[in-house]
Computed example of a mutant assay.
Amino acid sequence: MRHQNREFIIVGQLDTGSYRLWDVAPAPTDPAKRATVLEEITVDAMDAFGSVHTEYATTAREAVDQLLAHLRARYGDDFALAADSNLDAYNEDAPPADPTEPYGKATTTAATRDSLYEITASVVPGTPHFNVDGLPVRSMGATWTRDRVRAGISNSGLDWPTGNVLVKAASHAREGDGVTSIGTSGLDLAIAVTVLAAAGQVPAECLEGAALVAELGLDGRLRTPYGLPSTVRRLAEDGTTTVIVPDSEVTDLRHTGARVIGASSLNEVLALLAGHWHHQNCAPCDQGSTTPHRPSTARASRDEPLADNPA
């Protein structure tokens, strides 16, 4: 059965006399999603000294053959597919990927002492990469963040998504606000959770209604970033009503103006989010339930016992 003609995205590298194919997949049919995917794949391809092309065809193999024909017209009839190309992607018998949603995407809120951040993660089929863009220090800071997040997810018994993982940290600060790298490790938890949501391991809608601020240990435990009280106050002043932090800090954050929920690990945070305990109007939460909907180890600032009334 012949497939319908559609657009394919081809990623590879031009070499002397040959083209090294890395991956080929159907492009999203939605214009906005197509633009996002092309932008992200192009950035990663350029970082690896590769290139991105698009061709309309009925199969992945036909799309690559068309690209090779164009390259032969430009560089000569001897131009061919390199021997170390990804031939699995070139297999004409492989069915095209689902055109309705070829990638996942999720967004949540985080902050440092100096700025609020919108953390967005996307997972795109293709060559495995993990990039984090938008951190105040784009050198070793980004490298350490990637290492902590990837190790924290894997060592929590969770699956690291296969494919191209891109995280964008968009600061709400204005130019000249003096945003520094202080407390940047506090973005780890938000980055890890959005990656997992984009990969479909937790529903993306669970991320709504809470900001996530914690450093992620290599073992998946939550650690306290520098300047946490100032960070939570900044979130509260901006209108954030609920913040998830390391459980050891809940008591000290009672007067920051936000509802503070504590957790000890990445897995516990995922349980809180999946159970919607962070949502203010959730009946089991308001009733103080200790069922799996609310992990028994979780603490919140409103859990502190009230003083006994005088007789």
Rank of each mutant, 00 (worst) to 15 (best):
308 D>I: 07
206 C>G: 06
267 N>H: 06
76 G>A: 08
267 N>C: 11
266 L>Q: 09
26 P>V: 01
209 G>M: 10
208 E>G: 13
81 L>G: 03
208 E>N: 13
69 A>R: 10
297 T>P: 02
114 D>L: 09
76 G>E: 07
175 E>N: 08
142 A>T: 11
224 T>Q: 13
158 L>K: 07
166 L>K: 10
164 N>I: 09
201 Q>R: 03
185 S>F: 02
66 Q>P: 02
195 V>N: 00
105 K>I: 13
53 H>D: 14
310 P>S: 12
51 S>I: 09
238 D>C: 08
90 Y>A: 03
273 L>V: 00
29 T>K: 02
304 E>C: 07
187 L>G: 01
43 V>A: 14
70 H>D: 14
261 I>S: 07
205 E>P: 03
72 R>A: 12
182 I>H: 02
16 T>F: 13
73 A>D: 15
219 D>G: 15
106 A>E: 13
77 D>M: 08
106 A>N: 11
8 F>G: 04
36 T>C: 05
270 L>N: 04
305 P>E: 14
55 E>W: 03
167 V>E: 10
106 A>V: 08
19 Y>T: 00
73 A>T: 09
93 D>I: 09
159 D>C: 01
253 L>N: 06
69 A>G: 14
27 A>R: 00
117 Y>V: 08
16 T>I: 13
131 N>M: 04
256 T>H: 04
37 V>P: 00
97 A>K: 04
236 A>F: 01
126 G>D: 05
19 Y>G: 06
251 T>C: 04
213 V>G: 12
235 L>Y: 01
24 V>Y: 00
24 V>N: 05
82 A>T: 02
146 R>P: 04
100 T>Q: 12
241 T>P: 04
100 T>W: 07
107 T>I: 08
111 A>I: 03
202 V>Q: 07
288 G>C: 14
247 D>F: 06
48 A>D: 15
51 S>T: 06
2 R>V: 11
217 G>N: 12
200 G>R: 02
188 D>F: 08
219 D>E: 14
15 D>W: 12
99 P>F: 05
10 I>Q: 02
